[in-house]
Nucleic acid binder design. Structure first.
Lengths: 117, 117
DNA sequence: CCGATTGTGCTAGTGCAAATAGAACAATAG
DNA sequence: CTATTGTTCTATTTGCACTAGCACAATCGG
């Protein structure tokens, strides 16, 4: 499990953490049943607050990517398979957008708009 | 030009406005050379501040979708063609994500992650 | 040429949500 | 029983959206 964060990024720390886990999932580096490192461990090694890590885990729980239980930790669910399915379609769309010269923000805004319509 | 906003939405007003214009662009309802309504007009009809509308216009200018000049207003550029090109790819990806059960936020986060990699 | 229109720039203030944090608590594992 | 792990509650700080008013500059139309 590779968890990277950039404290200088405008993107919230907990979002960066969640994104890191999703990234591992979409690359096939996570399997159903795998256990993420404990929040306190991650917090210590990245020198951030436990709540920040927990919040990232809760986001992933709300998505259904992990199960979260006291004493046990965060365990990857079967839904991890869905994430790797998009490991192709997403890069393709992003490549198109980059060719056209669209920024990340513009692209995500258009997707959100389409999602709500 | 149909500009809709939802004051109750958590999405900032200026983002909603920009999204409205992009939506019109991707649907082919905007052509190069078309002029957006003046910021003061939009502000009056939507009962919001002029600066909020101007900010939306500036976002679109930064994207290159419109030219912004005093006395003339906001004029759509040739880049509008690129937006309608994605009028197909985006709905396709969004449909896939919905089938899998991914929320809008999760999908956009994954795209942003891919964009920065 | 003149006056109306339109975006630009600046400063300021207000309200609210996001982000981070500390400490005590509860469930689970071994 | 004890250590581990997530949960809950409260609090603080920071940042940003939005509004507001005013003066300014470029453009357009008569």
């Amino acid at each position: 499990m590779l968890l990277r964060i950039d404290p200088a990024s405008p993107i919230p720390l907990f979002e960066q953490l969640a994104a890191s886990v999703r990234s591992e999932a979409s690359r096939g580096n996570l399997r159903s049943g795998d256990r993420l490192p404990s929040a306190r461990d991650v917090a210590d090694s990245l020198d951030i607050n436990v709540h920040t890590v927990l919040r990232a885990y809760q986001v992933l729980r709300d998505e259904g990517l992990v199960d979260l239980r006291r004493g046990r930790g965060a365990v990857v669910t079967e839904r991890v398979a869905h994430y790797s399915e998009l490991g192709e379609a997403i890069p393709r769309l992003v490549a198109s957008a980059k060719e056209i010269g669209l920024g990340a923000h513009t692209l995500t805004a258009m997707i959100r708009q389409e999602y709500d319509s």
